[in-house]
Design a protein around this nucleic acid. Structure first.
Lengths: 191, 191
DNA sequence: AAATATAATGAACAATTATTCATTTAAAAA
DNA sequence: TTTTTAAATGAATAATTGTTCATTATATTT
């Protein structure tokens, strides 16, 4: 099979994410997906072997795109707090602007489709975050007696809830609230 | 229809939660569910009108049981920090010991099965937490310039991540870590 | 114990959804 | 333009899954 139209695959991915964002993996049928992507059902099978392969492929695709987004605009010569805030905001933006991705990733992780290989992949996402926390400890700005993972869980957990409530319409994120929320996070982890 | 065996319904709920915890809502079939609950497929339809009604019923059931668990052992005459820690730990325990419930609730919220009525219900869970935060502000122990919802999101988000990683086997929760984690939370929200 | 009522069963049926493939449409090459 | 090749279509088929119901087992009443 020669290389198929990349753009069309992107359209299929996008349609899948939109549908999963609304009705979850349980609600996604190949028929609905094709309709949303303006294709015939059979066309999906030109690009993907079957439904399972489509999910698998989308899953891997999402893990490639993400991590560079988190570190956009981060310069190591920024003071630590500013650099950390930058990444903090990047991650919040990511969760808000690509909310369906999170829904897909979380539901896929607990679906009949996930493979053991996929599970390992999700761990690797965290490594660059750990590096930042290490820096904070070296500069004696971050609590030395708390392990990196715990600090990371506090930061990510908070951001995820903020994004979740914002997208759901229950809690609007404003600039003022971003500053306050980061301050809370900072107070939690600072030495 | 006269009242059916409550215990059997509990068994069905339990089986459903276990299956959804492993393969998500997308992976749950009536056949699998019946097998796990040691019943014939048809029996499920004696207790529930159909699959949708079963989910709906389970969803409502979960919302009734939960909130009393969170406030177990909370006495208003405890110093604020101790009382808050108590609830904090209760919620962590809840998320760990009833992890499948969380998976179900989150997936159900984004499934083809949820109704608008169900959506409203999930908001009500938070009210008792808000009351505690109010107390903290009155006693001038909690940041006055941060709204309750934000404080709540930080606390819940962190706990949810801790429980998630613990259950997944990636981050074991020990007594020492519980104390540290609560300290982080406290540092975030304290005045 | 017999009669009656209720619950449980699981194979049969219905509905939904995934997948295939003969045919059409569009693009590329001759 | 004609021929050849690739891509797209969507109705038909296959597979899966939800639901029903005639029958059997169990419990309750007389």
């Amino acid at each position: 099979m020669r290389l198929k139209d990349e753009a069309k695959i992107a359209i299929i991915y996008q349609a899948a994410l939109e549908l999963v964002g609304r009705e979850g993996i349980a609600g996604l049928t190949m028929h609905k997906l094709a309709r949303r992507a303006n294709l015939a059902t059979g066309t999906l099978y030109i690009y993907f072997k079957n439904k399972e392969a489509l999910f698998h492929s989308l899953y891997r695709h999402l893990y490639n795109r993400t991590d560079e987004r988190f570190f956009q605009g981060y310069k190591p010569d920024l003071p630590f707090r500013d650099g950390m805030k930058r990444i903090w905001i990047n991650y919040l933006r990511h969760r808000v602007e690509h909310y369906e991705e999170s829904v897909f990733l979380e539901q896929y992780a607990r679906s009949p489709y996930i493979t053991p290989e996929d599970k390992r992949l999700s761990e690797s996402m965290k490594t660059p975050f750990h590096a930042i926390i290490q820096r904070g400890k070296l500069e004696q700005l971050v609590k030395a007696d708390v392990d990196d993972e715990m600090i990371l869980l506090l930061l990510l957990g908070f951001i995820r809830e903020l994004a979740h409530e914002h997208v759901g319409g229950a809690y609007e994120i404003t600039q003022e609230r971003i500053d306050k929320a980061f301050q809370l996070s900072w107070d939690a982890v600072k030495q």
